[in-house]
Simulated assay, not measured.
Amino acid sequence: MSRNKRVNVMVREKFTHIYARAAERKGGEAGLESLLAIPLDAEQLRAIPDHRWLAAFSQKVFQSGMSWKVVRNKWPGFEQVFFDFDIEKMLLMPTEMWERKATDPTIIRHLGKVMTIPANAQMIHEAAVEHGSFAAMVADWPGDDIVGLWRHLKKHGKRLGGNTGPYTLRVMGKDTFILSQDVESYLRNIGIIDGGRDTQRSLQAAQSAFSDWQQESGRPLCQISQIIAFSCGDNRI
């Protein structure tokens, strides 16, 4: 079967079938629904202060390749050492001060990851200058181009590529799908993705498929993503 034909088959698959498989694996519809995320609306997203976005990005950067629990347990120390991630203060700190802070025993001492904080503070500041706040930019970013927001984070931020940026968006309440291992495997199995996961071609193909499922189901992208993951892979109850 050609790639184009395989893609067409996937687009025609009813989301109700995917949902039914997920519900069967999670003990029924009630059990499945209890696991699904509920994204914030645009007004709620705009209300999030920009320093909280910086904190969230920083936490996900540190969690990459490390125990998430260890990072969470250490996080109060990060908040104190980095002045609650106040954007203006982050931009005013000289390099030698960052180097000193990277050795503070109350945080996870990793200079490379620490140096993402001023870089991502600069990204947030630039967005605030253009859009009024970083939160406003995120809130207004259209769901039918969520991969465009991923690309923005990767291009203008530091260490926000892969799933780091998307996971942060999900945690903060922005509606986004995530190419988790289960979701990526599913998309590959039915021919939506057949190359590198983070190529423009693969991301746009995934976006198109999720937009179709959203139009069919009326559900937010995050729930569609979760339901697909729950419908396959090793995650039965």
Rank of each mutant, 00 (worst) to 15 (best):
I228N: 02
P220G: 06
Q200S: 10
R219E: 01
R236L: 12
I227G: 01
I192E: 15
L45V: 12
D175M: 01
F78W: 09
Q226T: 00
R46I: 14
L32W: 11
L92R: 15
Q59A: 11
I227P: 00
K154H: 09
Y167I: 14
N8S: 14
V114W: 00
M172V: 07
A42P: 04
I124K: 01
F82I: 05
T168R: 05
L32C: 10
L36N: 10
T116D: 13
I178L: 13
G143V: 04
I193W: 05
A139Y: 05
L149H: 13
D198T: 15
Q207Y: 05
E13A: 13
W53N: 08
F230A: 07
D182N: 09
I48W: 13
T95A: 11
S211P: 00
K174T: 06
F57M: 08
R159L: 13
W68S: 08
A206C: 09
L153P: 08
A55T: 04
G112E: 01
P105F: 07
Q223T: 00
G27S: 05
D182C: 00
S217H: 02
D198C: 03
L221N: 14
L149F: 09
L221T: 06
G31M: 12
Q226E: 11
V71N: 07
G28N: 08
M172W: 15
V61Q: 12
L40P: 05
A128P: 10
D104P: 08
L92E: 15
K74N: 11
Y167A: 14
I193T: 02
A229E: 05
S64C: 10
L35M: 14
L169A: 10
E29Q: 12
R219H: 08
F62H: 06
A22K: 01
P49F: 11
R72F: 05
W75N: 04
V138M: 06
L221W: 13
H156S: 11
R236W: 06
K74G: 07
P105A: 09
R21M: 10
F62V: 02
K158E: 06
R109A: 06
F83G: 07
A127Q: 12
I192V: 11
L35G: 08
Q200K: 12
H125K: 14
E13F: 02
N4R: 12
T116V: 03
D104M: 05
V138S: 07
D198Y: 13
E96I: 09
A37L: 14
F78E: 01
K154V: 01
N73E: 15
R52K: 15
P94R: 10
E33M: 13
Q59Y: 03
A22E: 03
N73W: 02
K158D: 13
A55W: 06
K89Y: 06
I146H: 04
V138T: 06
H110Y: 14
A209Y: 15
I178F: 04
P166R: 13
Y19I: 00
V71C: 02
D194M: 02
H152K: 06
K154R: 07
C232I: 08
S217C: 01
T103S: 14
N235H: 12
W68L: 01
T16C: 05
I124V: 11
L187E: 04
K26V: 00
G27Q: 05
W213G: 01
